[in-house]
Nucleic acid binder design. Structure first.
Lengths: 202, 202
DNA sequence: TTGACATCTGTACATCGGTTCAGTATAACA
DNA sequence: TGTTATACTGAACCGATGTACAGATGTCAA
């Protein structure tokens, strides 16, 4: 929050807080009252400064018209990623924040879906029973990549291996199971490539 | 969206869309104009219906005062979890939607943090180098649970084992490594319990 | 057929609220 | 030393906006 004076920052924070907690942009008079100003013009001056410095935009004539610049609108979502944990509680030590773990940021919405893994056929590739496999929907999966095959409407996570004859072999990652050759006549589709794994422990 | 008439649903959707795309609640007259009504009262009637049916709340006298009921404010976030994948593309087959994988829903915000796992000392517990361990901040970790120990500001994920003499032993899950007894004199804190795992593949 | 409800027109009013103008005071700056 | 930015007071204007009242039409279940 560089470039703002103390007062301007207070005003800006107040707007953000109102938006978050009250769910709507405060009116000029509400800000005025909250800060104990006698004149709404005090607020106006600050808002103009915020506009000039690029923190907000305003739509002339419209009630509750403050528009927060995109940079500051990004809500802190997801799980905070902590680097070093030198002092205090990890969560409060936000100096050490490495960002946020947010699935919507990592995996483009609309392109990915998640699948519950059942069984232990991929356990050596790190997929346990009950895990979520995150799949990027795509028509092709290369040999050696882990992908989702949909056979007769049943989705399975397996390592793909394209055979020289053009057929597909689905390889489990568990020595208890044997590779499975997909019948070219079967109702088969590629669901996509597995690009992530999530496990909820206990 | 049960209980709403077609028109009411249109109005409600318009409000949601305005909020999402324009960033602010539409005024009664803006709604009026968007639908081509000659009277603002048409909007008012619909808004009253929406209030009565619990879709919105209104704060009397306030401009742009529509407050969307929490149930409908929740945007579809996270990765869609697909169950059966009988027909069509998994993402489009929303009949088979089992919900959304959203870290903010699974892990209460403010209570959890994520830690990048480095090394292979916990590989047999399923934690690979580079994985994110999701940690619930709590002062106690039971024997046998996987937790985060912070020693000299350095956080490590290990299985906890409390010894009969009250000392703590940190047990790696990799036969290459030996259990480590925490020096009672050391600068030691418990970071919390590991409750989740996330891996980004490739 | 009667009443409840949904959907809309038309008019009107009070106040909410953005905006402007005229000043004052202080500190930073060049 | 004048200029500019910050930080306000005080008053006022007027369009934006929520809200109310009166009424019309159509649907649908009791």
């Amino acid at each position: 929050m560089r470039g703002l004076t103390k007062r301007q920052e207070e005003i800006f924070s107040f707007i953000l807080r109102s938006l978050r907690e009250e769910g709507c942009i405060p009116s000029v008079r509400e800000i005025c009252q909250a800060f104990g100003f006698a004149s709404t013009n005090a607020v106006n001056d600050h808002l103009e400064a915020l506009v000039k410095k690029g923190y907000i935009n305003r739509r002339p004539g419209m009630a509750r018209n403050i528009e927060i610049a995109p940079d500051f609108l990004i809500p802190e979502r997801g799980v905070p990623i902590v680097g070093r944990v030198a002092a205090g509680s990890p969560i409060e030590a936000l100096e050490n924040l490495d960002g946020y773990l947010d699935l919507d940021v990592i995996y483009e919405p609309g392109l990915h879906f998640a699948l519950r893994v059942s069984g232990d056929s991929m356990i050596e590739a790190g997929f346990w029973d009950g895990d979520y496999a995150i799949v990027r929907q795509q028509p092709k999966v290369e040999s050696g990549e882990i992908g989702v095959a949909i056979i007769d409407g049943q989705a399975t996570v397996k390592r793909f291996r394209w055979l020289p004859d053009g057929a597909l072999e689905l390889v489990p990652e568990n020595e208890k199971y044997q590779p499975f050759r997909v019948d070219p006549e079967a109702d088969f589709r590629i669901g996509g490539k597995v690009v992530g794994l999530h496990r909820v422990i206990r």
